[in-house]
Deep mutational scan, measured.
Amino acid sequence: MTEYKLVVVGAGGVGKSALTIQLIQNHFVDEYDPTIEDSYRKQVVIDGETCLLDILDTAGQEEYSAMRDQYMRTGEGFLCVFAINNTKSFEDIHHYREQIKRVKDSEDVPMVLVGNKCDLPSRTVDTKQAQDLARSYGIPFIETSAKTRQGVDDAFYTLVREIRKHKEKMSKDGKKKKKKSKTKCVIM
């Protein structure tokens, strides 16, 4: 069974824990209790493949930012979460993405942009803004509501699919490099 290491990042209060708990335990946590770091595991079937999701729910508070490099190193894919009623959390996505790329030393890291709290009427981040940002990053965008469960499975499952595509691409690139290195030079 394939294991996928997913990391949920975003500013404090955007609903990272609520999304994760909704996926794992099928219930909505409405009281806000700032996370330092929590880890969850769940076995699911995605596109006919049974897999184990190892999900790291991270601290959004700035005082825990020193811990970010460590979990970013171990993560295979990242859910970059903002709240649709919090423009600052949307603007912060850029910083999370840049930090992930720096730590992973790669421009090509599996990510999904997630606009959470889409059940709320007080939207300050337009869907088109988020779609445009995701398009500019070359990553999928999904709106979710941890409260109603809308888009929750889709967000995590899409990230797994992005990781699969990335692994497939990397193995193809690896095979191309191996083929090239088999060419021999004969000096007579």
Score class of each variant (00 low, 15 high):
residue 2 T to P: 08
residue 2 T to I: 08
residue 2 T to H: 12
residue 3 E to M: 11
residue 4 Y to L: 13
residue 4 Y to W: 06
residue 5 K to S: 13
residue 5 K to F: 02
residue 6 L to W: 03
residue 7 V to Y: 12
residue 7 V to N: 12
residue 8 V to Y: 04
residue 8 V to H: 00
residue 9 V to A: 10
residue 9 V to L: 15
residue 9 V to I: 14
residue 9 V to P: 02
residue 10 G to W: 00
residue 10 G to K: 00
residue 10 G to H: 00
residue 11 A to S: 11
residue 12 G to V: 06
residue 12 G to K: 01
residue 13 G to P: 13
residue 13 G to K: 11
residue 13 G to M: 13
residue 13 G to W: 11
residue 13 G to L: 14
residue 14 V to T: 13
residue 14 V to R: 05
residue 15 G to M: 00
residue 16 K to S: 06
residue 17 S to L: 00
residue 17 S to M: 00
residue 18 A to W: 01
residue 18 A to G: 10
residue 18 A to I: 07
residue 18 A to R: 05
residue 19 L to C: 13
residue 19 L to K: 11
residue 19 L to A: 14
residue 19 L to H: 07
residue 20 T to C: 13
residue 20 T to M: 10
residue 21 I to W: 11
residue 21 I to E: 13
residue 21 I to K: 15
residue 21 I to H: 15
residue 22 Q to I: 01
residue 22 Q to N: 13
residue 22 Q to R: 07
residue 22 Q to M: 06
residue 22 Q to K: 10
residue 23 L to R: 06
residue 23 L to I: 07
residue 23 L to C: 15
residue 23 L to G: 15
residue 23 L to Q: 15
residue 24 I to G: 12
residue 24 I to S: 14
residue 25 Q to L: 09
residue 25 Q to V: 04
residue 25 Q to N: 09
residue 25 Q to E: 10
residue 25 Q to H: 13
residue 26 N to K: 06
residue 26 N to P: 01
residue 26 N to A: 13
residue 27 H to K: 13
residue 27 H to V: 10
residue 28 F to D: 01
residue 29 V to G: 07
residue 29 V to T: 13
residue 30 D to G: 10
residue 31 E to Y: 10
residue 31 E to C: 09
residue 31 E to A: 06
residue 32 Y to S: 03
residue 32 Y to M: 03
residue 32 Y to D: 00
residue 32 Y to E: 03
residue 33 D to W: 13
residue 33 D to L: 14
residue 33 D to Y: 15
residue 34 P to G: 02
residue 34 P to M: 07
residue 34 P to H: 02
residue 34 P to S: 03
residue 34 P to L: 07
residue 35 T to M: 01
residue 35 T to G: 01
residue 36 I to F: 11
residue 36 I to V: 02
residue 36 I to G: 02
residue 37 E to T: 02
residue 37 E to R: 00
residue 37 E to P: 00
residue 38 D to R: 01
residue 38 D to M: 05
residue 38 D to C: 03
residue 38 D to T: 03
residue 39 S to D: 07
residue 39 S to A: 13
residue 39 S to M: 11
residue 39 S to F: 08
residue 40 Y to P: 01
residue 40 Y to E: 05
residue 40 Y to S: 04
residue 41 R to F: 06
residue 42 K to H: 08
residue 42 K to G: 09
residue 42 K to D: 05
residue 42 K to T: 07
residue 43 Q to I: 04
residue 44 V to Y: 05
residue 44 V to K: 03
residue 44 V to L: 06
residue 45 V to A: 10
residue 45 V to E: 06
residue 46 I to F: 07
residue 46 I to T: 07
residue 46 I to N: 09
residue 46 I to A: 08
residue 47 D to S: 07
residue 49 E to W: 06
residue 50 T to A: 13
residue 50 T to N: 06
residue 50 T to Y: 04
residue 51 C to I: 05
residue 51 C to K: 05
residue 52 L to Q: 10
residue 52 L to N: 09
residue 52 L to W: 07
residue 52 L to H: 14
residue 52 L to T: 12
residue 53 L to R: 01
residue 53 L to W: 07
residue 53 L to P: 05
residue 53 L to Y: 12
residue 54 D to P: 02
residue 54 D to E: 13
residue 54 D to W: 02
residue 55 I to H: 02
residue 55 I to K: 01
residue 56 L to K: 03
residue 56 L to R: 03
residue 56 L to E: 03
residue 56 L to Y: 06
residue 57 D to F: 01
residue 57 D to K: 02
residue 58 T to P: 06
residue 58 T to Q: 04
residue 59 A to G: 15
residue 59 A to T: 15
residue 59 A to L: 15
residue 59 A to M: 15
residue 60 G to H: 12
residue 61 Q to E: 15
residue 61 Q to T: 14
residue 61 Q to A: 14
residue 62 E to F: 09
residue 62 E to L: 15
residue 62 E to N: 14
residue 62 E to T: 10
residue 63 E to H: 06
residue 63 E to S: 07
residue 63 E to C: 05
residue 63 E to L: 04
residue 64 Y to K: 04
